[in-house]
Design a binder for these strands. Structure first.
Length: 636
DNA sequence: GCTTGCTCAGGCTA
DNA sequence: CTAGCCTGAGCAAG
C-alpha cells in the first residue's frame, strides 16, 4: 500500500482514516448511577429507542402537510435517462402531494423527561460511532425541517399571506417533539452525552434541546427538579453561558456564572435579589455532590443565520458558590466553575485560535505554515499549507487546478448543446427558466444555503442574464472560507477551515483533469488510480431528508442525473479537495452541479457541508470505495 | 391531571 | 446598528 506521499501516480490523500461501520449496539457498557439514584435496569438500548413518526398533534401537521406538499420532491417527475429529455420536462403544475390529507397521525402524549440520572463512563468505538450517527441524524432532520419551513414561509410571503412571527427553529423542534424525535429524554444524562463532541456548534437553542444537550429553550440552567430527584433536591446538569447577565465573567477554563432570577419579564436589568431556589439551588447541590456540568457557550460571530453560535465546551465542576453584591447592587448568586482536565480543546478557544490565524501574516505564525496559498491565486481565497510534523510539502508539487479541465472535444460539444439561460434581470424567481430545470424551485435559499440535496442541480450560468450575485449561482462563486491543507499523524493530509462552516453551505469544488469513459478504461487498465464520481455514495440524499417526521417524504429524483462514466485524474493537477479524508460519518458530501454547460454526463463535483463544522475541525467525505480499501488495510 | 409563572430566544421594526 | 417589542414553548412548581 502506497503512502499518501510516495505513490508515483495517485498521490491524493484520502487514505488512512478508517472507521468501522456503525453496528447495532450491545448493551453492556458501564453506567454508574449517581448518588442514591437506582441502578440502571433497562440497559442503554433505551437511549436508541426513537419511535417512528406516528404520533403528534394534528394542527401543526395539517398546516405543514398542505404547505410542504407543494415543495417537497415527489415521485411524479419521471423521465428517461436521456439528457435531452431532462431539459424538456416542464415545471410540474401541481406536484403530487407527498403528504396526503388523510394521513393518519395517532395522538400520543409527548413523553415527559425522565428523572433517572445516569452517567455514561466509557463507550466502545462502535458505540461511539452509533451514537454519533444518531446525533447527526437528529441534527440533519432539525436543520432540514428548519430550512424547509423557511422556504415554505418565504413562498407564502410571495403570495401575500401574512405571518405574525416566524420561528422556523421552534417549529422544526415542535415537529420533532410530536414525533418523539428528541434525544436523551428518557434518561437524565450526567456528564458527556454519547455522540456529542466537545467543540460541536449549534445555531439555535432549540437544537440543543432536540439532541438533549440542554433542556431549556430559554433557561440557562438545566436541572433535575427537586420533586423528581430521589433526594428531593434539584441537581444541575448543564448551563448555557450566553453572557446574558451583566455579572458573568468568562475566562475559558474558569467560568464565573451568575444564577437566574431577579429580573422582570425579558428585561436585561436586575430588579430584585436572586434567591437560592430552582436552578440556583441545583447548581449549589451539584457542587456539593461533585456533579459535572455540561457547559455551552454562546458566542457572537459575523456569519451564520443569527449572528450567534452555541459551542459545547465540555464538562466543568462547580467549585465555589457565593452571594455577590452585583454591579446593580442587588444580590446575585455566583458560581465558579472549573473545567475538568483531560478533555478535547475547548470549541470556543478554537474560534479564538482560528481568528488569530485570520489576522496574522505567514511569517508571524508559528512554525508549520509552509505556504500561504498553494492555489497561487487561482481560488477566490488563499489556501494555506500546514505541516508541523515533517518536511513533506507534497501539495506544492502539483499543478493547481481550481476548476476541472475538460477534454477539448467534450468542451466543444458543450458549446453546441443548444443551452440557453434565464432572462431574469434582477432576482430569479420561480418562473425563471433555470428554476424550471430544477423542477420549479431553486436548490438554495436566499442566503445561499442548500435546502436539500438533489441528484443534480442546475445553477444559473454563463448563458443567463441574471447578475453574478444571483443566489442560484452559489457553488460557482468559489470558496468563501479560508481553507487549509494540513498534515497530521492520523490522516496523512487533511483539509480544514479557519472559519466555521454552516451546514448546507458550499465548501469547494472537486477538481482535476476530466477523462472520458474510454480514457478512464484505458488508464484504469494501466493501473492508474482515478477519482470516479459515480462511486461517491448518494450522501446528498441525507441532506434535506425529513422522512423521520414526514414518512411519505421521498428523496428527490429530479433533475435526473445519468450514470456518470467519466473520471478525474488528479495525479498531475488537482485542487485542495483531493486532500479530503474519508469517513463513514462524513461532515461534507458530494453534490453534482451544472452551470457552464448543460451536459448532465459531466457535472461539476461540488462539496457541501452536512453539519455545522467548527473552525479547524477536519473535513471528511464518504468516498464509498473506501470500505473495500479499508478492509484490505485492516487485513494487513 | 391542569394551570401558571419563569426563562441568558430570536425575529422584526422603528 | 441597536433598543425595544412581541411571541414563543418547554419546564418546574403549585
Amino acid at each position: 500500500m502506497a503512502s499518501p506521499s510516495s505513490s508515483s501516480h495517485l498521490n491524493f490523500a484520502f487514505v488512512p482514516k478508517i472507521e468501522p461501520k456503525a453496528e447495532p449496539l450491545e448493551l453492556d457498557f458501564p453506567i454508574s448511577p449517581i448518588g442514591r439514584m437506582p441502578n440502571l435496569t433497562h440497559g442503554i438500548s433505551e437511549l436508541t429507542s426513537l419511535s417512528p413518526a406516528t404520533d403528534g398533534e394534528e394542527k401543526l401537521f395539517t398546516e405543514y402537510h398542505r404547505l410542504i406538499s407543494t415543495l417537497l420532491p415527489t415521485s411524479g417527475a419521471t423521465g428517461s435517462s436521456d439528457s435531452t429529455a431532462v431539459l424538456a420536462v416542464p415545471i410540474p403544475d401541481s406536484p403530487a402531494p407527498i403528504l396526503t390529507a388523510g394521513m393518519s397521525v395517532n395522538k400520543r402524549r409527548r413523553r415527559d423527561r425522565s428523572s433517572e440520572m445516569v452517567r455514561i463512563c466509557s463507550l466502545r468505538e462502535k458505540d461511539r460511532i452509533h451514537f454519533r450517527n444518531l446525533i447527526r441524524r437528529a441534527r440533519i432532520t432539525f436543520e432540514s425541517l428548519r430550512l424547509l419551513i423557511k422556504q415554505v414561509e418565504a413562498r407564502e410571503k410571495d403570495f401575500g399571506i401574512p405571518r405574525k412571527s416566524s420561528r422556523p427553529d421552534l417549529k422544526a423542534a415542535a415537529l420533532m417533539t410530536n414525533c418523539d424525535l428528541w434525544l436523551n429524554r428518557h434518561k437524565r444524562i450526567i456528564g458527556s452525552i454519547p455522540g456529542i463532541c466537545v467543540g460541536d456548534i449549534y445555531f439555535f437553542r432549540a437544537e440543543l434541546c432536540v439532541i438533549g444537550l440542554h433542556g431549556h429553550i430559554q433557561g440557562g440552567i438545566d436541572y433535575v427538579s427537586a420533586s423528581r430527584s430521589s433526594t428531593g433536591e434539584p441537581i444541575a446538569t448543564s448551563i448555557v453561558a450566553s453572557g446574558g447577565y451583566e455579572d458573568d465573567e468568562d475566562g475559558g477554563d474558569v467560568l464565573i456564572y451568575s444564577g437566574h432570577g431577579g429580573r422582570e419579564g425579558n428585561l436585561r436589568k436586575m430588579c430584585v435579589s436572586q434567591k437560592l431556589e430552582r436552578g440556583n439551588l441545583a447548581l449549589e447541590r451539584s457542587m456539593r455532590y461533585g456533579i459535572e456540568i455540561r457547559v455551552v457557550r454562546g458566542m457572537k460571530i459575523d456569519r451564520g443565520p443569527n449572528g450567534k453560535v452555541y459551542v459545547y465546551d465540555g464538562l466543568y465542576k462547580v467549585v465555589d458558590c457565593w452571594m455577590d453584591g452585583g454591579k446593580s447592587g442587588l444580590g446575585v448568586y455566583k458560581y465558579k466553575l472549573l473545567r475538568i482536565e483531560g478533555q478535547e480543546e475547548m470549541g470556543s478557544s478554537m474560534f479564538k485560535q482560528a481568528a488569530t490565524l485570520q489576522v496574522s501574516s505567514l511569517s508571524a505564525r508559528k512554525g508549520g505554515y509552509f505556504c500561504s496559498d498553494i492555489s497561487m491565486g487561482r481560488e477566490s481565497l488563499p489556501v494555506s499549507l500546514y505541516n508541523d510534523l515533517d518536511d513533506d510539502k507534497d501539495p506544492l508539487h502539483f499543478q493547481y487546478l481550481a476548476h476541472p479541465l475538460y477534454p477539448p472535444d467534450i468542451q466543444s460539444q458543450f458549446h453546441g448543446d443548444g443551452r440557453r439561460g434565464c432572462e431574469c434581470v434582477t432576482d430569479c424567481s420561480s418562473e425563471c427558466y433555470c428554476a424550471a430545470l430544477n423542477g420549479g424551485e431553486f436548490a438554495y435559499d436566499a442566503g445561499g444555503v442548500l435546502v436539500r440535496g438533489k441528484p443534480l442541480i442546475y445553477e444559473c450560468g454563463t448563458a443567463c442574464m441574471c447578475p453574478p450575485s444571483c443566489p442560484n449561482r452559489e457553488s460557482q462563486k468559489g470558496i468563501r472560507r479560508r481553507l487549509e491543507v494540513f498534515r497530521s499523524n492520523e490522516i496523512g493530509w487533511g483539509v480544514r477551515s479557519w472559519d466555521l462552516v454552516q451546514a448546507g453551505t458550499f465548501v469547494c469544488e472537486y477538481s482535476g483533469i476530466v477523462l472520458t469513459k474510454e480514457q478512464t478504461e484505458l488508464l484504469s487498465f494501466a493501473g492508474e488510480n482515478l477519482v470516479h464520481p459515480s462511486r461517491f455514495p448518494a450522501r446528498w440524499a441525507e441532506w434535506g431528508d425529513v422522512s423521520d417526521v414526514f414518512p411519505n417524504y421521498m428523496t428527490p429524483r429530479y433533475p435526473l442525473s445519468p450514470e456518470l462514466s467519466f473520471s478525474l485524474d488528479v495525479s498531475r493537477a488537482r485542487n485542495l479537495a483531493c486532500y479530503l479524508s474519508h469517513s463513514c460519518s462524513p461532515n461534507v458530501f458530494m453534490q453534482f452541479v451544472l452551470y457552464d454547460h448543460h451536459n448532465p454526463s459531466f457535472p461539476h463535483l461540488m462539496i457541501f457541508a452536512m453539519e455545522n463544522i467548527p473552525p479547524l475541525r477536519e473535513l471528511s467525505i464518504d468516498y464509498g470505495v473506501m470500505d473495500e480499501w479499508a478492509q484490505k488495510l485492516i487485513a494487513m
